[in-house]
Design a protein around this nucleic acid. Structure first.
Lengths: 217, 217, 217, 217
DNA sequence: CATGAATGAGTTTTCATTCAT
DNA sequence: AATGAATGAAAACTCATTCAT
């Protein structure tokens, strides 16, 4: 019988695991998925459900007990990672916000770089390669969290900006920060050390934060 | 010569179209691929060879006469687009290079934005979603061309920079420019008009170009 | 361990069937293949995986669970048959070896004929038509087993032969015996009864076994 | 439209080539086919019509002008080769028949070996691998010719044999001779020189020719 | 006659998903 | 709950053959 047509495709996890055993089953699956994605990207031949289950030491049957769909695994993975990162960053931000810009910005950059390195592949590859993510998890939590933090920071340092202008600056800053970090990790350019990378990125950021509001004609 | 011996996967076009008829077949295929990718991304269910052939009004047989592999189609597409964009940009650059920075930079940004809009999906989606591209098309021509242009421009405007520093600036500038343009097109944020987008981006760029060489400790 | 890395074409069975259910699936597939080959030879149109699966009353999916490749099916078939035949012949040989030549040789011929009749098509057609077999199954067990038995028998009956001469005689005998049997089964000539066939073949064989070592000039 | 159903499949050459140009086209095709078969066997991927046409320096269109079917090419090839071999053998036979057995038999074997070596692959591989041949070319001319010659020779040297017995001996002799030659060429066993091979084969043959008619019980 | 672009039925193979045990 | 055998729709790709030019 033709599948996938008889019901709305569910993208989210099927049942909340309660017992310890299934707890670890879910984790094993996610971990296996993470590893496979890291090693090979998302091509469905290298991260097939069978492979994931195998690596997790779990039968496919069990896998489908907890995830209704292959995609669900990756979405869960993504959300988890994303949430973790957001939480970590929040902690960092709180600790730092009252310091002067030239201390706090590099500090934040450092943490962001480390964080992305740690979760490198899941986050970087996934967003790019799994289009469904954009739709499924509307608030891409981490990016949004960054966006909000930036708005707040910019608001503090350059008061009197309109909402539009605030959003605009946050838009650019987020893209500059995350974009440069992504590419830096991906390309690992020989000419640039972590140190210079963070210095330069911080300089750019600080300058843009401090740029006076435009006088519109 | 011994035929049929295990030939490794070919990524490039199988035979060059000679007659006008086949010329147009190839074009139809590429166009169909372009459209499907634009509409649906790369998931092999939405851009299967069958679908491409169908949309191109061509039999699968014909498709495989010219492209040995599904991937080959996309690579061809990518290379073509990439080359076109590079050529266009070169022309623009030449026309502009002797103008003062505050004229030429926004001008270049304007052109880049237009160019990316035009070729939006092929370029944007492809690089992210087709991992093989990185390997198959050694010099991702467009990005490289941008990189080189930036180095030249920076060299002119901030003479006396070391090679390393030149490369570093080009690295940041390329990422900032292309990254912001990509995201701007993708997200189409309501708060930002094309005009402000270009102004802001230009401001950031100009500032970074002019930043004095760092005094290292 | 890195999965998904280009694994070279496997010719051997994919997973060993554990449960009784899969046992019978594998058997059904092999049986279906055997029948189709018998009826039609190996042309991939008459023994396509689809056809085999269909006849086996099994889905193609299942087929590919156990055989990674169409070829793998035939190789498995061949090995199985070959091994069975070798085992049977060994038993026969043991029982017979101490009898006088003029008893044992016809006896062996009789068994060989029967054996080939039983496994007729798999063995006969396959070796000729599937070139990969030669490479895949290093010792074509049955033929080798015959070869060895012949060497032993000849050694017993005509002692004092050099190794070379032993090999030479075994070469001729094996070809004569197996060749004549094959053709007899294939052509089923009206003029020749099983009885006369075996008599004549035995006579030829016995004579050759007993031929004195050559005096080389 | 589905082909192959609207008319009886024709296996023989489509039109008799008259002009010199097409003469050479046909030859080129046959030659190309011969080479490809020699190099790679019959797997339709290594001897596809396209490949044959290509190697022959001829368009597929032209190929199909002269051969209605892929098979037709091979059948033509086979018949040609077979006829040539038969002709050659006939000449040899005539020259030799009045000599004493112990001269003529080795002589014939020598010629047969040479002949098979020359046409090695076409003949050997083809018979085994192309089942259609058996049906299409009813009188496999060469084998038949050998068969007949043997009957004549045996009739001369052992007069008074019944027709059945004649046929029987010819059956065995043909298989022994051709079988051993085929295998000798295919396996090229190190232990056996051409000389010993021919000596032994001749001995076997002569002995069998001379074996007295059986006294039936 | 020659050409080679086009065709498409038919192969092999994959992989997400189900379901009997 | 867990298992893993079974499923089959769908994908990639091939190759003999036709036919417009």
């Amino acid at each position: 019988m033709p599948l996938g047509s008889q019901q709305q495709r569910q993208f989210h996890a099927r049942k909340a695991p309660r017992q310890t055993r299934s707890r670890s089953t879910v984790d094993a699956i996610k971990q296996a998925a993470r590893e496979l994605v890291s090693a090979e990207g998302f091509s469905s031949s290298s991260t097939s459900t069978t492979l994931i289950a195998e690596r997790a030491g779990v039968s496919i049957g069990s896998l489908y007990q907890y995830f209704p769909t292959r995609e669900a695994i990756f979405i869960a993975l993504f959300e988890e990672t994303s949430a973790q990162m957001a939480a970590t960053m929040k902690r960092v931000m709180v600790r730092i916000l009252d310091q002067p810009l030239d201390k706090s910005v590099p500090e934040v950059m450092r943490h962001l770089l480390a964080l992305h390195r740690e979760h490198e592949l899941v986050l970087l590859r996934m967003v790019a390669q799994v289009p469904q993510l954009k739709l499924a998890t509307q608030p891409i939590s981490f990016e949004n969290m960054i966006f909000d933090s930036i708005r707040i920071a910019v608001g503090q340092w350059t008061p009197g900006l309109s909402l539009r202008e605030l959003n605009r600056r946050a838009f650019f800053l987020r893209e500059i920060i995350l974009g440069c970090i992504h590419r830096y990790i991906n390309e690992a350019p020989e000419d640039i050390s972590d140190r210079t990378f963070i210095d330069d990125l911080s300089a750019i950021v600080m300058h843009y934060i401090g740029m006076p509001a435009k006088r519109r004609r």
